[in-house]
Design a protein around this nucleic acid. Structure first.
Lengths: 126, 126
DNA sequence: ACTAGTGTTCTAGTTTGCTATTACACCGCT
DNA sequence: AGCGGTGTAATAGCAAACTAGAACACTAGT
């Protein structure tokens, strides 16, 4: 996995797990890959995995069972809330950044539409 | 100024200066506040300011004149390019994050519109 | 010359994120 | 009891980001 070296890896892993849950690659009750396995596939240290999971466990997204593994909570309310929070945070960040650039809300939407269009046509985006 | 402790301060200052230029608070040829002054107003060390400015100077956004100050370049082409890059980077980041959440382009636009609407009505957003 | 304002550089020290490695604790199966 | 899977914890070491503080270099005005 590729990491942005401007933000802590443990934080990016948190978001990664959240995404896997939201997209459905990890369903409620599913076991998360073992910490040592995650460390291998993400090519980071076990401690870093642990740190990321610790936050998710604290938030109730994951449930840890010693000797067995880490599992996605079956509390769908918590998961739904997480999903909403993740999306809203993303939109809020975009909004704030663009507003900081002096853009009006309508312009933001137009800019995003334009970007999507460009991206479809040009295709020359990384 | 408030900083996100998840990303390096010097990087956030870079973006801050870029924003000041884009919005027009800093016009081409304008002198940027003195490094010691910036350090005070942003409550950060001079070295950190220096590091942020160094990158902007390297990119040609700012021009440094020893003994006089740092100035916004008068090369409007460079500034225009910077503005475009900043905006595009922002949109690209949003796009990638939302795509990673399984969202289709049309949904992204809808989500942003929805967020803006919520924000206008509710008003209870930090 | 002096002074005040500016950018520049350097050293030392702290904190944080990450790695490597080891050890420990628990579960389930045989 | 033993073994192999799992999570958990602790130590030590490294590098990056930031701070504090001092010193240096240049410019402009007196």
């Amino acid at each position: 996995m590729e990491f942005d070296d401007k933000v802590p890896i443990y934080y990016q892993i948190e978001q990664y797990i959240n995404r896997e849950i939201i997209v459905g690659n990890l369903a409620p009750g599913d076991q998360v890959p073992a910490v040592r396995q995650l460390a291998l596939t993400l090519t980071v240290n076990v401690n870093t995995i642990q740190r990321a999971l610790a936050e998710l466990i604290r938030d109730g997204i994951l449930v840890s069972e010693r000797g067995k593994g880490n599992f996605v909570t079956t509390d769908t309310a918590v998961l739904a809330q997480m999903k909403q929070r993740v999306i809203e945070d993303e939109l809020a960040e975009t909004y704030d950044h663009l507003a900081g650039l002096g853009m009006a809300p309508a312009e933001m939407v137009a800019a995003l539409e334009g970007y999507i269009k460009e991206r479809k046509e040009g295709g020359s985006h990384d």
